[in-house]
């Protein structure tokens, strides 16, 4: 057993997990699941409402909206996974190092984190994108950087708690090196809350990525992304609402799925709620 889980709380986890794995499945096998190519134009069928041939209708260039939403899931998931990973990895390293060494190391690292934290997320993302240049990879990095302070704070708080435990003192007393203590004694014990945070960060990453591409800073047309689809759909709200409803629903479902999964995991890991 590596993680103590309260399986009584499994229902939330199962519900969130189901939505999340469905979306991940669709994203990974987009080329199999999608009925059409997301780029194929069908000039005869522009702005066609949902029908048997095009379940979610077509856009202003006659491309199948369902297929575009499915392919867009790929980009969203990729950005969200990698951005959360960037945040998780760097945040955990910074937070646990700050907690372990304390003193000026802690001071410098955490003040820097607070500076990052003090900017509104979307503003920081826009600034970072402007500095890095517009691309999917860069939006991933930008969103990842936004997540670092949150993970770092959480990792630091959890690590400080673990540092008070006598087994860390015992590890010092047998002569374990700092790196070994961090990896063997501390990291495994702060992992649970960080994993929960990662699930929540994930849904936030989906929102941020959509916001960035909505603003034209993320995925570039013709590459489909939920954000840029929303942006285009905005112009056709009155006569072709499905153009914006489809990506909107996709964002909604994804965020719901990850938040439910995160909440469920939080409860499952929380020793106070455990029987």
């Amino acid at each position: 057993m590596t993680l103590d889980i309260n399986w009584r709380r499994w229902r939330l986890v199962a519900f969130g997990g189901f939505i999340v794995s469905a979306i991940l499945f669709v994203a990974i096998f987009a080329n199999v699941v999608a009925p059409y190519s997301p780029y194929d134009l069908d000039v005869a069928n522009m702005l066609a409402p949902p029908s048997g041939a095009h379940l979610l209708g077509t856009d202003e260039l006659g491309r199948d909206v369902l297929s575009r939403v499915i392919y867009a899931a790929r980009i969203s998931m990729m950005v969200a996974v990698l951005a959360s990973m960037v945040g998780l990895i760097f945040g955990t390293i910074i937070g646990s190092v700050a907690a372990y060494f304390g003193g000026w190391v802690d001071m410098v690292l955490m003040r820097f984190m607070e500076v990052l934290f003090s900017f509104p997320a979307i503003l920081l993302a826009v600034v970072l994108m402007a500095a890095l240049g517009t691309s999917v990879v860069n939006s991933m990095i930008a969103i990842g950087i936004i997540f670092i302070p949150g993970f770092a704070r959480l990792a630091r708080a959890a690590a400080i708690d673990v540092l008070r435990k006598q087994y860390v003192e015992s590890a010092r007393a047998v002569g374990m090196s700092n790196t070994r203590i961090l990896v063997r004694e501390i990291l495994p014990n702060i992992f649970a809350p960080l994993l929960v945070e990662a699930a929540v960060a994930f849904s936030y990453a989906v929102l941020l990525e959509s916001a960035l591409s909505f603003l034209g800073l993320g995925a570039q047309p013709p590459e489909p992304s939920w954000g840029n689809m929303l942006n285009v759909g905005r112009g056709f709200m009155a006569n072709a609402a499905w153009l914006s409803l489809a990506p909107g629903m996709a964002i909604f479902l994804t965020v719901l799925g990850f938040n439910t999964l995160g909440d469920g995991l939080r409860d499952a890991f929380d020793p106070h709620l455990r029987d």
Binding site: T2, R164, K165, Q166, Y167, E169, S170, R184, E185, P188, N189
Partner: peptide, 11 residues
């Protein structure tokens, strides 16, 4: 050390 509960890494 004193505290049996925190003397060992639980994992």
């Amino acid at each position: 050390f004193q505290n049996p509960a925190s003397s060992f890494n639980p994992r």
